[in-house]
């Protein structure tokens, strides 16, 4: 895919080769950078604690190239932390995270180089308020990728068109609706030509009537074959777009599988309880779904 024309790739692969951590797969990752081999994201035995609070209690999990994975789960389950560990916005306490053949948890890794290849979309958009929409899309292209002004503008305009906001290029974030801001934020991430995209509850801060436009953009991205890891509460989106759904609770992965299996026919009580609440909040308020307890066995794949 895109990795083929990424000049940084060979170096990156070498770095991960040197770290020699997963010998065999490191080698094949190096050889197959541009090809299908190797996972986009590989997480092994990931732990993360904030002080005494253990948020991630041993996560093993991977995302294949071109795969769309949705992570669902109650708030506080650690799903956002997991996502933020992938581009090292959070430093894992232990375990390894490998992105496109580069081990990001290696202390010697040049994290800025890796992050260029990982698009990140935040719940609160985090557009740069002192820059116009177009400048939001060009600043990292110019300062990080060292693209010329013309090229950066061309890429930026192409991505604004992709999210349906060509006419807003001169607007400042404060002049845009939440939905428009989030679409600009997606376009900003896309302008770096990322190999994969992380979405951290991208629609949670939006008014309900604005959610649809953002989901439509994400849907078309998925259709174009972008590798996506999405933390979300939008069950219908997960069912429709995801190749795989991961349910997390209490810092562990409880179950994962196709959307039809996890959302349609969950195997675990905890998943069922959660889905009942999310899909029909009114009903959950009336009476707690009885906790059947002992057979809620955790499955860490």
């Amino acid at each position: 895919m895109k990795a083929g024309k990424e000049p940084a790739s060979p170096e990156q692969a070498c770095q991960s080769g040197q770290s020699g951590q997963s010998g065999q797969s490191g080698q094949s990752g190096q050889a197959g950078q541009a090809g299908q081999a190797g996972q986009a994201i590989e997480v092994q035995d990931l732990h993360k604690a904030f002080g005494d609070l253990e948020v991630l209690k041993g996560i093993d999990f991977s995302v294949g190239r071109g795969e769309v994975v949705c992570v669902i789960g109650p708030s506080g389950s650690g799903k956002s932390t997991l996502l933020r560990c992938v581009n090292l916005l959070e430093e894992p306490t232990s375990g390894t995270v490998t992105v496109a053949g580069t081990e990001v948890t290696d202390p010697d890794v040049d994290i800025d180089r890796v992050r260029r290849r990982i698009g990140m979309v935040f719940q609160s958009f985090n557009l740069f308020p002192h820059l116009t929409a177009l400048e939001n899309l060009t600043i990292a292209q110019r300062r990080v990728l060292r693209r010329g002004k013309e090229e950066a503008n061309r890429v930026a305009r192409r991505n604004l068109r992709r999210v349906g906001l060509s006419e807003k290029e001169a607007a400042y974030p404060a002049q845009l609706s939440g939905g428009q801001q989030q679409r600009v934020a997606i376009a900003r991430a896309l302008s770096m030509d990322p190999e994969l995209m992380l979405f951290d509850e991208p629609t949670s801060a939006l008014d309900p009537e604005l959610v649809g436009d953002v989901l439509a953009v994400m849907r078309s991205l998925a259709r174009e074959g972008m590798t996506m890891l999405v933390v979300t509460h939008e069950m219908s989106f997960a069912r429709e777009v995801a190749d795989r759904v991961v349910f997390m609770d209490g810092g562990v992965i409880v179950e994962q599988g196709t959307p039809d299996r996890v959302v349609g026919d969950p195997q675990h009580e905890r998943t069922r309880t959660f889905l009942a609440r999310v899909l029909d909040p009114a009903a959950a308020e009336v009476g707690e779904v009885p906790d059947v307890g002992p057979h809620t066995k955790r499955v860490d794949r």
Binding site: D112, R116, M120, F122, N126, R143, V144, R188, M192
Partner: peptide, 19 residues
Amino acid sequence: GQWEAARSLGMSPGRAMVS
């Protein structure tokens, strides 16, 4: 979040600070 967004785009700490 501004700092995180800047770093997520691959900016170095100095660059994120200045830009």
